[in-house]
Design a protein around this nucleic acid. Sequence first.
DNA 1: TTGTATGCGTTATCAA
DNA 2: TTGATAACGCATACAA
Lengths: 335, 335
Amino acid sequence: MQHIVTSADVAREAGVSRSTVSRCLSGDRRISDATRKRVQETANQLGYQINKIARSMNTRKSDLIGLVTSGLSDPFRVEFLDKLIFAIQQSGYRPLVIDVSDPAQMGTSMMHLLQYQVAGVVVTSGSPPPEVGVHFLKRNVPVVLVNRAGRLDGADVINCDNVRGGELAADLLLGTGKTRFGFLNVKGGTFSGNVRGETFVSRLAPGLANGDISFTPLVCDSADYDGGFNAAVKFLAQPETAPNAIFCAKDHIALGLLDAARFELGLRVPEDIAVVGFDDIAAARQGAYQLTTVRQSATKLAEMTVDRLRQRIRGDNLADQRLILSVEMARRRTV
Amino acid sequence: MQHIVTSADVAREAGVSRSTVSRCLSGDRRISDATRKRVQETANQLGYQINKIARSMNTRKSDLIGLVTSGLSDPFRVEFLDKLIFAIQQSGYRPLVIDVSDPAQMGTSMMHLLQYQVAGVVVTSGSPPPEVGVHFLKRNVPVVLVNRAGRLDGADVINCDNVRGGELAADLLLGTGKTRFGFLNVKGGTFSGNVRGETFVSRLAPGLANGDISFTPLVCDSADYDGGFNAAVKFLAQPETAPNAIFCAKDHIALGLLDAARFELGLRVPEDIAVVGFDDIAAARQGAYQLTTVRQSATKLAEMTVDRLRQRIRGDNLADQRLILSVEMARRRTV
DNA sequence: TTGTATGCGTTATCAA
DNA sequence: TTGATAACGCATACAA
């Protein structure tokens, strides 16, 4: 077991004090060019790596940012995390991922992040119990909730424009002339999904009132491809009466629905059934699907998240914010 | 700004010493039940969270495990990371993700992990320069390379059985009676892809020798859906002479190829063209694709990785190992 | 511009 | 079974 190179080793080798080494490597101005150069050379030569754990002892903050998620099975969330991880690194931070499969453990999981002195936390899944808010507030650790219901005291909330999305979907489907509307969401619903569905329905209100159209709420067991597929096989069993203008709470569900409609029921899209999704995941653009969907930009969402995080870490703008990312309709072949 | 609760606070409140608090909360045996109970109660009451950063100062190890990857755009890698993150947490560790977009920065990125005193590292992308090996060896930090070329001294290597995979693909395609074979891989190739392709070709050797069949190496610009799609549009332009029994280095490429064949060229699968992929990603099972492919289990790969990591962290079995995950053919509708 | 002394919160060592 | 004390590696206030 070899000795690990510390700043003291570099100091001795370069003939300076530990403080000087520290200053050189943290980019402190007040150091002579000669000294800086010499120290940096010795550091490289010895293979010195700063010990961020030790540094955090003083500063009481690490450059870790907690990412609370639950699995990587949801395609849009993966795209978001991808951009988020990139943006976090660009800002000089490092992502510490916490996978919360059991929503009940959300609170304890977030408390674990405190043990690492994280500089901030991004929650992309599950709604943290309000009582954890005070612990984060007390330590000035900013929390950003993304596409989540925001009941957390002291946390910022960033959502895409679910309301506008529901409207866009309704308007587009109304324009098809189809009359049997449906909204497909996971059993129990999610915060985002519920808002999308409610807005969708309220936009249909006039037509529903005068009996021009009908609406059926549709439910699947899981918020993914299989959920959409299995649900569709059932509710499309009698295509003559089944909904034929369907808005899905998210693309992943819509893909399952599409495959069920085409390959299990033999329906033509969009002639027999029109489908609108939400998210615009990569697969929606693929030739096999060409899904018409409400687009939210994972990249912008990630940038907004990191921007907001950095503001709060700097101590700016400390009042809780609620930010909305605009959405747009991506028109393809399923409507 | 409030004061943050430390072990000293708990000690004072409970009327014991810091050492006792430390022992109680780290599950040290030699402490009386009464004291343990009292300390734990005061800790909860005060909302005390252990500072793992400070703990790492002494132990010189954190319970962080570095995950080196490059983006989350590759579906199989995402599935693997999903299982890996889960397995890491199950073992009481935390994943610290490093996204290496530029392969040239691989070395420095891995060195950064050392700054956090990681207990181990998993490399899923890019091949680390051999010289970083010594720094990890010196600190007894285990490195596991997954589905990568292993040129790193002191690192373990875990691969799926690329050789067997290539054979399975060749045998299956030979059975179709088709005669114009192709292997589609990204320009320049990857370690895994190259092995798969080479085995595939060598399995075709007899047929090639007596002129029964032909083989064409096919290349795409990126190892993803778009790469496969764009390449296929070109090389399938004259379907009468183009390869009609194609093995793809990975499923994601195969999906692009399939969509190009069906929707751009109007080909029937598998009548006009047979396709075999590699990985068995979730999308391969979807109705729109039903891709026949060589399956490797992301779950098993993750378990093997964490098992090996834990062995080395414990100090067992210190000789470099090379593990192989078996593969199998998942027969669907594209052959 | 540089060096000295001190403290961050924990665990390990030694003593009681 | 418990407590006092010394590290761990770094940053910073203060002194020079």
